[in-house]
């Protein structure tokens, strides 16, 4: 019994990891309707910012998180002003080609500055090892991921889906000209949303680097997972991303435990089935 519960817990924690990694993409792709594959690169740079802050300046791990959000948020606004905003009105394929090109450039950039090897990531002692909770031995870092993931989900659902700012973003996406005519500064709103999406991606990279490793190939390796979670969850919903993350996370870990010979498959099979059943995603609005 304790084995089953431990596996379930690990699955949920993995689900939160998937959520944390993909929520940044969910914001830019889902809310702004901009296909930005370079979100995965923002994640990687987030990881490097965390590593540098810890190794070079001795910043404690928890403090690096807001720092990463800020730095990557600013970086993404700069990129938005310089590059992305010129492509808001182009079709999806153009955006995909543009941003996948940026991913390759980011890989080369990271190799140039930090070398091709994997970074050393030292977590603080209180996040290492296991804790006894209700008789179960659980990994401390996974508990931490669940707590942080819940906090992020709550803040985002309240902040983006339930506030005036969130409504303004949706208005701009639905019809930019009318929103502008109503007196909204659409450029500013898009830039801010882009910053939030980028910052979240950076945060995702910083929080996942400990489990996934960090090297210049990070964006390409995990891009597929980001896309799966966002499309299964449904465009434009934070709660959908969370539900998709947890569902696929639990299915993946359970699959690997009970049917190890097909274990790696489960996540893809479920994705295909889910897309056949609800092409708009679990929580997506009908297009």
């Amino acid at each position: 019994m304790s084995a089953v519960l431990t596996v379930l817990f690990n699955g949920i924690a993995y689900g939160f990891l998937l959520f944390i990694m993909s929520v940044g993409l969910s914001v830019t792709l889902g809310m702004m309707n901009f296909v930005n594959l370079a979100q995965a690169s923002f994640s990687m740079f987030g990881g490097y910012v965390m590593v540098m802050a810890m190794q070079w300046f001795g910043v404690p791990f928890l403090l690096t998180l807001p720092l990463v959000f800020l730095v990557i948020g600013v970086l993404s606004v700069v990129m938005e002003r310089l590059v992305f905003r010129h492509f808001y009105n182009t079709d999806d394929l153009t955006q995909v080609l543009l941003t996948i090109g940026l991913v390759f450039m980011s890989i080369a950039t990271a190799t140039y500055f930090w070398g091709g090897t994997y970074q050393r990531i030292d977590m603080p002692p209180w996040l290492i090892g296991q804790r006894e909770i209700f008789g179960l031995t659980l990994e401390t870092y996974r508990i931490f991921l669940i707590v942080i993931g819940l906090a992020m989900a709550l803040a985002l659902i309240l902040g983006l889906e339930r506030t005036r700012f969130g409504a303004m973003v949706r208005a701009c996406v639905d019809n930019r000209r009318v929103a502008g005519a109503c007196g909204l500064n659409t450029g500013l709103i898009f830039a801010l949303t882009f910053a939030v999406g980028g910052g979240l991606a950076g945060l995702g990279g910083a929080l996942s680097a400990n489990l996934l490793g960090l090297d210049p190939n990070f964006p390409l390796r995990y891009l597929v997972y980001l896309l799966i979670i966002v499309s299964v969850g449904g465009m434009g919903t934070i709660s959908g991303t969370l539900i998709a993350g947890i569902a696929l996370g639990v299915a993946d870990v359970m699959g690997k435990y009970y049917f190890p010979q097909f274990g790696g498959f489960v996540i893809y099979v479920l994705t295909v089935l889910c897309m056949l059943w609800r092409p708009q995603g679990l929580m997506g609005r009908k297009a």
Binding site: A13, Y14, Y225, D252, K256, Y257, P260, G263, G264
Partner: peptide, 20 residues
Amino acid sequence: NVRIPVSNPEFSGYMQRMRD
């Protein structure tokens, strides 16, 4: 024995099997 997919970010299911 178990064969682990080459693209695999999550090991906890396998860890539990090894423990069992």
